[in-house]
Amino acid sequence: MKEWVGSAAICINENNEILMVRGIDTEKWAIPSGGIEEGETPEQCCVREVKEETGYPVKIIEELFVKEITIKGFDVKTHYFMVKKIGESEGIKDPDKTIEASRWISSSELMKIYHLYPEDLELLLSIINKGSFPNLDNRY
């Protein structure tokens, strides 16, 4: 089976909103994420993807967990990181031209939007609502 390895960023602002992106030709939202490039660490990938997809410079706070699932015949391994924005957005500069919008989403909005990865919803809500992380041991 083919393998895809990437990183994803959970970024919460001072208003307790989460940074999310929406792709072109879809109504589904997701946290910024993307594939690790050759010679890149998961941390470097995470910082680069957030910058490309949202324009925000961020720094890694901690690695949360690695999600392993199978999607369309690919073994997908995604490193999830908690990140903090360290500057203002310079606008979307996605070289793949797949991201149409990025914005901060509140916990009440999180319940109403369509999610590209619905399995992440519970995690995102728990982080926003509690400001802490749920037990991730048996999640995936």
Rank of each mutant, 00 (worst) to 15 (best):
Leu121His: 09
Glu3Tyr: 02
Trp104Tyr: 13
Glu62Ala: 07
Arg48Lys: 11
Met111Cys: 14
Ile10Val: 13
Asp94Gly: 01
Lys59Ile: 15
Val83Ala: 15
Thr70Val: 01
Asn129Gly: 05
Pro134Cys: 11
Tyr117Val: 04
Tyr117Thr: 09
Lys72Ile: 09
Cys46Glu: 02
Ser89Tyr: 11
Lys84Val: 09
Ile127Arg: 05
Gly131Lys: 09
Ile18Leu: 03
Asn135Pro: 13
Glu17Pro: 06
Lys130Phe: 14
Ile69Tyr: 08
Glu68His: 04
Glu62Leu: 12
Ile10Arg: 07
Gly55Trp: 14
Pro95Ser: 05
Asp94Asn: 04
Ile99Glu: 06
Tyr56Ser: 12
Gly6Pro: 01
Ser126Val: 11
Glu53Asn: 08
Thr26Gly: 10
Ala30Lys: 05
Ser132Ala: 13
Glu53Leu: 10
Ile61Met: 05
Glu27Trp: 14
Glu38Pro: 12
Ile31Asn: 08
Asp25Gly: 07
Val76Met: 01
Gly35Tyr: 01
Asp25His: 08
Leu116Asn: 06
Glu88Gly: 09
Tyr117Gly: 08
Lys93Asp: 03
Thr78Pro: 10
Gly87Tyr: 10
Glu68Ile: 04
Glu122Arg: 09
Glu17Asp: 04
Glu49Ser: 07
Trp29Thr: 04
Glu62Met: 11
Ile36Met: 15
Lys77Gln: 01
Glu88Thr: 05
Lys93Asn: 03
Lys51Ile: 13
Ile127Gly: 05
Lys67Arg: 13
Ser106Ile: 01
Pro118Phe: 09
Glu63Ile: 06
Gly39Tyr: 14
Ile99Ala: 00
Ile18Trp: 02
Glu49Trp: 00
Lys85Arg: 15
Ile61His: 02
Pro32Lys: 06
Glu68Arg: 02
Asn138Cys: 08
Leu136Phe: 12
Glu100Ala: 15
Ile10Gly: 11
Leu121Pro: 11
Val47Leu: 13
Lys84Pro: 08
Leu19Tyr: 07
Ile69Gly: 07
Ser108Gly: 07
Cys46Lys: 02
Leu121Asn: 10
Gly131His: 07
Thr78Gln: 04
Tyr117Leu: 04
Tyr140Met: 13
Tyr140Leu: 13
Val76Leu: 00
Met1Lys: 05
Lys93Phe: 00
Ile12Asp: 04
Gly23Ile: 01
Glu27Lys: 14
Arg139Asp: 09
Gly91Ser: 05
Asn138Met: 09
His115Pro: 10
Val50Met: 12
Ser89Asp: 15
Ser89Val: 07
Ser132Gly: 06
Lys112His: 05
Cys45Met: 08
Gly6Arg: 03
Trp4Glu: 03
Ile60Gly: 09
Glu109Gln: 12
Ile92Gly: 07
Glu53His: 12
Ile69Ser: 10
Cys11Lys: 04
Ser102Val: 13
Thr41His: 01
Val76Cys: 00
Ile36Asp: 10
Ser107Met: 03
Gln44Cys: 03
Ala101Asp: 15
Val47Met: 11
Glu100Tyr: 11
Val58Ile: 15
Asp96Gly: 06
Tyr114Val: 10
Ser126Glu: 15
Lys84Glu: 15
Thr41Phe: 01
Glu49His: 08
Asp25Ala: 06
Lys85Ile: 14
Leu110Arg: 12
Leu19Lys: 04
Tyr56Ile: 15
Ala101Arg: 13
Asp25Pro: 06
Thr54His: 11
Asn129Thr: 06
Glu122Gly: 11
Phe74Trp: 13
Ile127Asn: 07
Lys59Val: 15
Thr98Gln: 05
Thr70Gln: 03
Glu68Gln: 00
Ile86Gln: 14
Ile12Val: 04
Asp96Gln: 01
